[in-house]
Amino acid sequence: MNAIVTGTTKGIGSAIVKQLAAHNFNIVLCARNQQELDAQLAELREAYPKLRFYGMKADMENMTDVKEFAKFSLKCLGSADVLVNNAGLYIPSDVLQEEESSLERQMKVNVYAPHYLSKFIAQSMKLKSAGHIFNICSIASVKPVINAGSYSISKAALLSLSKVLRDALMPFGIKVTAILPGATLTDSWAGTTLPSERFIAPEDVASSIINCLQMSAGANVEEIIIRPLKGEI
Rank of each mutant, 00 (worst) to 15 (best):
N62A: 02
N62P: 02
N62G: 04
M63N: 09
M63Q: 12
T64R: 09
T64L: 07
T64A: 11
T64C: 06
D65A: 06
V66M: 09
K67I: 02
K67W: 03
E68S: 06
E68A: 10
F69G: 02
F69T: 00
K71T: 14
K71C: 06
F72P: 08
F72Q: 04
S73F: 05
L74T: 13
K75D: 13
C76A: 14
C76D: 12
C76W: 03
C76V: 00
L77Y: 03
L77G: 05
L77P: 07
L77C: 07
G78S: 06
G78N: 10
G78D: 05
S79H: 14
S79E: 12
S79T: 14
S79G: 04
A80I: 01
A80N: 09
D81N: 15
D81P: 03
D81H: 14
D81T: 07
V82A: 10
V82D: 12
V82G: 08
V82E: 12
V82F: 04
V82T: 14
L83H: 09
L83Q: 08
L83K: 10
L83E: 04
L83M: 07
L83G: 07
V84C: 07
N85V: 05
N85S: 10
N85L: 08
N86E: 01
A87G: 07
A87F: 03
G88H: 07
G88A: 15
G88W: 06
L89A: 11
L89N: 10
L89G: 04
Y90I: 14
Y90G: 03
Y90L: 14
Y90R: 08
Y90W: 13
I91W: 03
I91E: 08
P92M: 06
P92I: 00
P92Y: 02
P92V: 01
S93I: 00
S93F: 00
S93M: 03
D94H: 04
D94I: 01
V95I: 15
V95L: 13
V95W: 09
Q97P: 00
E98L: 00
E98W: 03
E99L: 10
E99Q: 13
E99N: 12
E99F: 05
E100V: 11
S101C: 06
S101E: 15
S101F: 13
S101R: 05
S102W: 01
S102C: 15
L103F: 13
L103M: 15
E104P: 03
E104K: 06
E104A: 12
E104V: 11
E104M: 07
E104G: 00
R105K: 15
R105L: 15
Q106P: 06
Q106E: 13
Q106F: 07
Q106L: 05
M107V: 12
M107K: 09
M107A: 05
K108P: 05
V109W: 05
V109M: 08
N110T: 10
N110W: 09
V111K: 00
V111P: 00
V111I: 14
Y112I: 06
Y112L: 12
Y112D: 15
Y112E: 15
A113I: 04
P114D: 13
P114N: 10
H115N: 12
H115S: 14
H115G: 03
Y116I: 09
Y116H: 14
Y116E: 05
Y116N: 09
L117W: 02
L117C: 07
L117A: 08
K119F: 04
K119N: 15
K119G: 12
K119M: 13
F120T: 01
F120W: 02
F120Y: 14
I121V: 15
I121L: 15
